[in-house]
């Protein structure tokens, strides 16, 4: 079999890769590269699952890897890319609350916090491999970074990507901390796909940022279009 230490080294590298993709997602303005970066992240996740499978040889991990590859690395990115074509948005320039640099710094701080917190919480769990702990920290951090993407970007479509990256974080965390029954994992993925489908469909209706049409709301009087108020 393959050397455990080597696999662990690979896992470490992959984890760092994931963080790098997340950082890229936070800071990039180009939507198309955002989607492909998400796709890359998912692929990394799949690789991680495979690597873990090598370590633990649990069939569930393999199944997860397969499902994730199909759904997250192929179906969803493709779908989002199609939608993007439809609404003809290429860039998401505006940021809210956090500028890209701040978010990067902030996410580093967050990772530290998550590290402390998790080490505090997981002390009750019988000692696990240091690597697994590291994976859990990365998972939660990925979630929080995804959340930061959601709240700092204005376009709904970017928010969807943020959400997806959060979900990746959950998956990562789940893989490292424990192993859930496959049926659950599978259902979650199904659920996620529906969610993303719906959200992206809804965003089609919104060709501009959410803020913009707040200002224009009064134009959309439902009936009879009364006069506009100054």
């Amino acid at each position: 079999m393959i050397d455990t230490a080597l696999v662990q080294g690979i896992i470490r590298i992959l984890l760092v890769c994931i963080i790098i993709t997340a950082a890229y997602i936070i800071s990039t303005r180009n939507l198309l590269s955002l989607v492909s970066m998400y796709s890359l992240q998912s692929v990394t996740l799949v690789c991680l699952a495979l690597a873990l499978w090598v370590l633990e040889s649990s069939p569930v991990l393999l199944a997860i890897a397969a499902v994730s590859l199909v759904s997250k690395a192929i179906v969803i990115p493709y779908f989002i890319a199609t939608i993007q074509e439809k609404i003809r948005i290429r860039r998401d320039i505006e940021f809210h609350f956090l500028s890209p640099t701040t978010s990067l710094l902030f996410s580093m701080a967050l990772m530290l916090v998550v590290y402390t917190v998790l080490s505090h919480i997981l002390r009750d769990i019988p000692a696990r491999d240091n690597l697994f702990f590291f994976g859990a920290v990365i998972g939660i951090s990925l979630m929080l970074m995804g959340m930061m993407v959601m709240l700092s970007r204005k376009r709904a479509i970017t928010k969807v990507l943020g959400f997806l990256s959060m979900e990746n974080g959950v998956l990562l965390f789940g893989m490292f901390v424990t192993e859930l029954p496959f049926i659950i994992e599978f259902l979650i993925i199904i659920d996620l796909i529906i969610l993303v489908l719906l959200t992206t469909i809804l965003t089609v209706g919104i060709d501009s940022t959410l803020e913009d049409y707040h200002k224009r709301l009064h134009r959309f009087r439902l009936v009879g279009g009364t006069e506009e108020r100054p």
Binding site: L198, T199, T203, I206, Y213, H214, L217, F220, L222
Partner: peptide
């Protein structure tokens, strides 16, 4: 109506 979509998106997110 747009505001409905807006509300729904907020809800989902």
């Amino acid at each position: 109506a747009r505001e409905n979509i807006d509300a729904a998106i907020k809800y989902i997110f």
